[in-house]
Amino acid sequence: MIGIYRRLKERGVLGLNARNGQYIMPANERRYYRLVDNKIICKQRLIEANVAVPALLGEINSQYEAGHLKNRLEGLSEFVIKPASGSGGDGILVITGQRDRHWLGGGGKLLDLGDIQYHVAGILAGMYSLGGQVDSAMIEALIHTSPAMREIAPEGVPDIRIILYRGVPVMAMTRLPTRRSGGKANLHQGAIGAGINLVTGKTLSAVMNSSIVTVHPDTGQNVVGFSIPEWSDLLTIATRCYDAVPLGYLGVDLVIDRDHGPLVLEMNARPGLAIQIANNEGIGHRLAAIDNQDQAESRPPDARLALGLELAEANCQR
């Protein structure tokens, strides 16, 4: 046990206590949390900063509006309903099509208006929000994953998580849904996490349920050494997010849409630590390298991106 402890320390693996106490607490100002915890506000900030996001089709703020949901859904056959303050991907309802008076939900389940209204009512009552406060629901455009990503992720919406520390990209991974994860890009539920080389945009190593894998279990497709499409755009967009939301330790989740290219899906002020397993590397040394830089966060976005790549390159050669 003590041996493992020492090895992890050596490799710069960040634990939850260290993440919370040494990075999130000093770097993330409480007042900016609202900007990421509420996805509607987050979206507005990103639009103001000229960052591409999935379109917001509507918001529902009261039970009254939920009762009149029918008019709002008129003419919409593909959309996603989310809690504005949800966490961990809970409470997301994906609608992929319409059949007469029913909607086609995730997993091919047919839903009627009542089912959707019930789900919205649950969101509004705070069932999925942090601390159970009253929440609002948002209707968002459905993401159509780009065919290039479909190669390694046949199902669900694969996303790309990039961690920014003081505005500098430090680590990245892609999360590939599996049948086991129920189409969700959630490592906890059995999705694949694959680390990405920041410089080349190629996947490094992959884990599923904390064991190392090289192929997708559903297709047998190799998931290691895959070039993430539009990598430099993804990096540029992610880096710019820091200008919209000045949180020092920030996780940016992006998707690549068939029609709109890279979009920022959401941001996270307390990004998880599984990214270290996916990269087979601790994040601590990279964070420390940025702390050694003078005022990394006050540089313009391209300079920060350049710094991130420079440090990553140095890291590769080490």
């Binding site: 992890l8 693996v13 634990g15 106490g21 904390s210 087979n280 590397e281």
Partner: peptide
């Protein structure tokens, strides 16, 4: 409150990182 070391559960969670030398 300022203990920033690993939790015991994390030693298990991250054990793959401790085992393999890259």
């Amino acid at each position: 409150g300022r203990y920033s070391g690993y939790r015991l559960s994390e030693l298990i969670r991250f054990r793959a990182l401790a085992r393999e030398q890259s």
